[in-house]
Design a binder for these strands. Structure first.
Length: 269
DNA sequence: CTCGCCACCTGGGGGC
DNA sequence: TGCCCCCAGGTGGCGA
């Protein structure tokens, strides 16, 4: 999926076109997402959207008396399209606003569309989530506290949503490169200074990716169908064997927690 | 608690 | 063309 920047770019893209507008219909072509799309989602017509929020990689469409929770999984995109535009094979759900519709396309069907009545932050999928890396609550001191007592590799901890949300496989590698830290380093061995550098790196990488409009990963497209250009800016992700742009050492690929990790053996210690 | 691993699903690319 | 294998953005849930 889309990691935090892609979700945020989607949020920024769709909010202006749905805020204050009534949902006129919900079309579910295939309810077999990560969890079945329930009847409650199908009966949202008439509710007015108050705004679109985000918690980690979850989009939260405020419908007044509840929220539509949308997750893009690994391959999802949410775009505003003409409601009459023919739906493709993987266009599973439309939230219709008159002549236009928010269309969820998700080839792998790891995404989700759920209805949450009441306090959305108490929802079982959100209640356990960790700190927002772009919020004022996240800095070196906080990261240092989070890492204490965890001997797991720092890369795995960065991707653990119970501690820090939004940092996925790509930006975890990129952040560690920017901070000059080896991904295998046990989390609780990082000094306060290195935690400060890493926290700055995480925020910087996520911000840069949002500014660039998200990454152009395979089928990721933003809310208006545009492709982001951050992929060109990858320093290590997907560059195994290619020279580091700074020191020319070949970028290495290793596997951590069954996911690929990329790092520069020269720049990261 | 923490940790490592699995599963869910489809499609694209490379090698033969 | 076809087949087979590997790889891919996430994350809840399981057992150790």
């Amino acid at each position: 999926m889309p990691e935090l920047p892609e979700v945020e770019v989607t949020r920024l893209g769709i909010e202006p076109s749905v805020i204050g507008r009534p949902i006129t219909a919900v079309v579910v072509r295939d309810s077999r997402l990560r969890w079945p799309v329930t009847p409650a989602v199908r009966s949202l017509a008439g509710k007015v959207v108050g705004g679109v929020g985000r918690r980690g990689k979850y989009l939260l469409v405020d419908c007044g008396d509840g929220h539509l929770i949308v997750h893009l999984g690994m391959s999802g995109s949410l775009r505003m399209v003409p409601a009459a535009a023919p739906a493709g094979r993987h266009d599973h759900v439309d939230i219709v606003f008159g002549a236009n519709a928010l269309r969820l396309r998700d080839p792998r069907r790891f995404g989700a569309v759920l209805w949450a009545a009441g306090d959305v932050h108490r929802h079982r999928l959100l209640a356990h989530l960790g700190v927002e890396p772009l919020s004022g609550d996240f800095d070196g001191r906080r990261l240092h506290a989070i890492t204490r007592g965890h001997r797991t590799a720092i890369k795995n901890l960065l991707m653990d949503a119970r501690r820090i949300v939004g940092v996925g496989n790509i930006y975890a590698s990129e952040s560690l490169y920017r901070a000059g830290i080896r991904p295998q380093t046990p989390a609780d061995r990082l000094s306060p200074e290195r935690c400060a550098r890493l926290a700055r790196a995480v925020r910087g990488v996520l911000r840069a990716a949002i500014r660039a409009g998200g990454s152009s990963l395979r089928d990721f497209v933003g809310a208006q169908g545009e492709h982001g250009c951050f992929q060109q800016a990858y320093k290590v992700y997907g560059r195994a064997g290619e020279p580091c742009r700074v020191c020319s050492a070949p970028v290495r690929r290793i596997v951590q927690g069954q996911r690929s990790t990329f790092y520069c053996p020269g720049c990261q210690r």
